[in-house]
Design a protein around this nucleic acid. Structure first.
Length: 570
RNA sequence: CGGGGCGUAGCGCAGCCUGGUAGCGCAACUGCUUUGGGAGCAGUGGGUCGGGAGUUCGAAUCUCUCCGCCCCGACCA
């Protein structure tokens, strides 16, 4: 491709409304343009990248035997009412009417449609298992679209849905999909983790999210330093600290702590570590009651874990000042478990504390050297209610946890019969009996994975595409070609040879200055660059430089193709 | 949804407080020069100042209203 035929819509200035690197670079490199909040147009360069990703996904999906279909974006409300999601889904589901007043929605996902297809087309167990997939545009009316392509309202997703007679078959396909996803992300050259996800109320045996590790990620991931264990921070179990609780030391004492309310203030004022303080949170319980949650001072409560507990209101809600006054006779900031007359739930780590500091249930007073069993009863109810932190023991017993941010780019899920049951999708089994099919679903964010790849691969000059994603493999840059017929001939010849050798080449035949070409090619992230100049031509050499290199390398014109074949396959 | 901010040329912004008829840089176009890291000089074109209403002799500027966009958000205990 020639730049004279393939415009590069690059911009030098960083758009003011782009926060993260991938968003800025996608605009600057001319991959996308914003149309409205959360809506983007893909330019020719961006489409090439999209197509690369889609090709890899198709390749991996097809090799598992999955079958490509294409379902409508506009979906009739009836099916959503059947599944119950017309009511379940909030305003994120964009609803509309046609000219006859019939109700429709823009598909945020396609479970209903595929289940409708399956119940009509699949009658016998002999047709199972089957796995349908599509690469399709989705629409979710996000509360707050942000980060460009990363959290857009309209986006492209590969979604697959498998149907089975039994759970064993589902597990098999699930494992295949897990492997296919790992293959896709590996081929795309991404640093990713398969993360254990909560199967929640929908049930099923397993669910994994695939996350690309990047600082701009919206999710925090905890993963083991030594094993394959990885989980969303919200879901990672916090084990009790190892070893026995320390023995009680000095006697309990009550100290004045005027105007010292927060853990940080108390820690500084009394010169004790925050991990030696006890944090007492008062939250709403069932009915009109309130409940105390006890945590170590350096830990934070995990709302998801806490609100699941019996006696705790869901969603987790902090008690009001009035409720705190009624329950404790002191202000927030001086609450503690000693003499507290409401039900108490103690975090595992807090139950392991000895000689700790806590509020005295009296304004401007705290206790020090507090010990369970000696100064107050042993915790009656110990639960895991906190967020894991870096360095915690890995829940699987191997290694400790590291915490990194991740961008969710894939999710594989054993759905079970949620949709097939609601929508009566069944087949006849060997005995001629009706049997509800069991389902799996497997999503992969096509547009998001591109943003994620850029987050993970860029520098101050622009994008550094992994080979598999690059819109072009090679940038062929002749220096001032318009001034030298000899150079033009050599460049044309090399372009021809490279193209014939099977490379995607971007031949910069614009009449622009060298620096301009270099900057453009670096911004759009072409992995390999060949510079042709008059001087080199005299010696039969060109300059080669990989996007990741900092120096040029002189290569004989006759060797360049062999070199590129070697480096691009390595 | 709540809170904060922004909307002026294709892009990035100034002007607004204190009303007097719109400017800077980049980009675009033309010419000359230049030519190995986003060139220089000269010139040209481009604006319903987000929309509407109001106050005023006069509104980008003040008031009201609508729209669009961006950012942040429920552990003080």
């Amino acid at each position: 491709m020639r730049t004279s035929q393939f415009p590069l819509n690059t911009v030098k200035e960083t758009p003011s409304d782009a926060e993260i690197a991938s968003h800025q670079l996608m605009i600057r490199a001319g991959l996308v343009r914003k149309l409205a909040a959360g809506l983007y147009t893909w330019l020719p360069l961006g489409v090439r990248v999209l197509q690369k990703v889609e090709a890899i996904i198709r390749d991996e999906m097809n090799s598992t035997g999955a079958l490509e279909v294409s379902m409508p974006v506009v979906q009739p409300a009836g099916l959503w009412k059947e599944s119950g999601r017309w009511e379940e889904y909030g305003p994120e589901l964009a609803r509309l009417h046609d000219r006859h007043g019939r109700e429709f929605c823009l598909g945020p996902t396609h479970e209903e449609i595929i289940t409708e297809l399956a119940r009509n087309e699949i009658k016998s167990y002999k047709q199972l298992p089957i796995n349908y997939y599509q690469i399709q545009t989705k629409f979710r009316d996000e509360i707050r679209p942000r980060f460009g392509i990363m959290r857009a309202r309209e986006f492209i997703m590969k979604d697959a849905y498998s149907f089975h007679l039994d759970d064993e078959s589902l597990q098999q396909t699930y494992d295949q999909m897990f492997q296919a996803y790992s293959n896709v992300f590996t081929r795309l050259g991404l640093n990713f983790r398969a993360v254990l996800a909560d199967t929640g109320s929908i049930g099923g045996n397993a669910s994994h999210e695939f996350h690309v590790l990047a600082d701009a990620g919206e999710d925090a991931i905890a993963f083991s330093t030594e094993s394959q264990y990885a989980a969303n921070v919200e879901k990672a179990e916090a084990l009790a600290p190892a070893g026995k609780r320390a023995d009680a030391g000095e006697a309990l004492s009550k100290v004045a702590t005027p105007n010292q309310r927060s853990i940080e203030e108390i820690s500084t004022f009394l010169n004790v570590a925050t991990s030696q303080c006890l944090k007492t949170l008062i939250v709403k319980g069932d009915d009109d009651s309130v409940v105390a949650l006890l945590l170590r001072g350096d830990h934070t409560v995990n709302e998801i874990k806490a609100e699941k507990l019996d006696g705790v209101a869901s969603p987790l809600t902090m008690a009001s000042d009035v409720e705190i006054q009624n329950a404790t006779a002191c202000d927030a900031g001086y609450i503690g478990p000693i003499g507290l007359n409401i039900s108490i739930i103690v975090d595992r780590s807090a139950a392991h504390l000895a000689n700790f500091v806590c509020g005295a249930n009296e304004n401007n007073m705290h206790y020090t050297n507090v010990n369970w069993a000696r100064d107050l009863a042993e915790p009656a109810r110990v639960e895991d209610i906190r967020q894991v932190i870096e360095g915690d023991l890995s829940p699987d017993g191997h290694g400790t946890l590291t915490i990194a941010r991740g961008i969710e780019v894939g999710h594989v899920f054993q759905l079970g019969t949620k949709y097939s049951k609601a929508m009566k999708a069944s087949v006849l089994d060997e005995n001629g009996k009706n049997k509800t099919m069991t389902m799996g679903c497997y999503g992969l964010g096509v547009t998001r994975v591109i943003a994620a790849a850029i987050e993970q691969n860029h520098d101050n000059r622009g994008i550094i595409w992994p080979t598999a994603l690059a819109p072009f493999q090679i940038a062929l840059l002749p220096m001032n070609m318009h001034k030298s017929e000899r150079l033009k001939e050599a460049a044309e010849k090399l372009y021809e040879e490279l193209t014939t050798a099977g490379f995607d080449v971007l031949f910069d035949d614009r009449k622009v200055r060298p620096g301009f070409m270099f900057s453009d090619m670096e911004l759009i992230g072409i992995p390999h660059r060949i510079v042709l100049g008059e001087r080199g031509l005299d010696n039969g050499v060109v300059e080669y430089r990989a996007r990741t290199d900092s120096d040029n390398q002189e290569v004989l014109l006759t060797d360049i193709i062999a070199l590129l074949k070697k480096t691009s396959s390595a």
